[in-house]
Design a protein around this nucleic acid. Structure first.
Length: 224
DNA sequence: GCGACAG
DNA sequence: ATCTTGTCGC
């Protein structure tokens, strides 16, 4: 499916259904936050720093940036990313002065073998809609994804046992797709529209996630 | 035991 | 995620 078609249905006949699935109206989205974490180690101890970058949906200007770093004592286990990263995320969120209407995570939401990736898990602490934006594919029950066409905005649904878990989205031509899934209180189509809205010409990632990623790299230099 | 494996 | 040089391309 192409993004132009998505926009069309989003603004026409799908609106009633969308409004049942989202707990908000797209037009009411003002501030969107990008969340990411970078790691380093000191001897035997592992440390991480979480950065949150808040961006205005319309102007795409950065409204606020916060960071929080600390020791990490939970190992990375595929499927359990939230338990490793959320402690830092929660502390970073406490430092926010602004109130984001939506959060975008580096990782999956519903596209997860227990339908509970970090984006979904985090939503219960944030009480805000969340979107999962992953750079690589987390395979669920031997389900491979279909490669979307090589055209900006093209995507393919990822179905497991007939149920849609997420989408492989081509955000830039000639560049690998990224994997979008619902975190919570938002539907997949709206998640894709918002993601594409924040993609610019220098990265396949939306600037929310991209800026948060760059910020963590800068923060790490200070602390390590 | 072997392979796969978001970040 | 992180360790890292050069290199191909817009």
């Amino acid at each position: 499916m192409k993004s132009e078609e998505l926009f069309k249905v989003e603004q026409e006949e799908w609106i009633p259904e969308i409004s049942l699935k989202n707990n908000f109206q797209l037009a009411d989205i003002g501030l969107v936050a990008g969340v990411d974490i970078a790691y380093w180690s000191e001897g035997e101890a592992d440390f991480g720093v979480c950065c949150i970058v808040v961006i205005d949906y319309i102007s795409k200007q950065i409204i606020e940036e916060v960071e929080y770093y600390g020791q990490i004592d939970v190992p990375y286990i595929p499927g359990y990313l939230a338990f490793r990263e959320l402690p830092l995320v929660k502390e970073a969120v406490k430092k926010l002065q602004s109130k984001p209407d939506l959060y975008m995570f580096d990782g999956n939401g519903y596209l997860h073998f227990r339908k509970m990736g970090i984006a979904t898990h985090a939503s219960f602490y944030l009480n805000k809609p969340t979107i999962g934006v992953a750079k690589s594919y987390l395979k669920i029950k031997d389900t491979d994804f279909d490669m979307p066409n090589n055209e900006v905005g093209s995507f393919t649904y990822i179905k497991v046992d007939g149920e849609i878990y997420g989408a492989a989205l081509r955000t830039r031509k000639d560049v690998k797709p990224i994997f979008i899934s619902c975190g919570n209180w938002i539907d997949l189509e709206t998640s894709i529209i918002i993601t594409l809205h924040f993609v610019e010409n220098n990265s396949r990632l939306p600037i929310t996630t991209r800026y948060a990623d760059l910020a963590t790299h800068e923060s790490r230099k200070k602390y390590s």
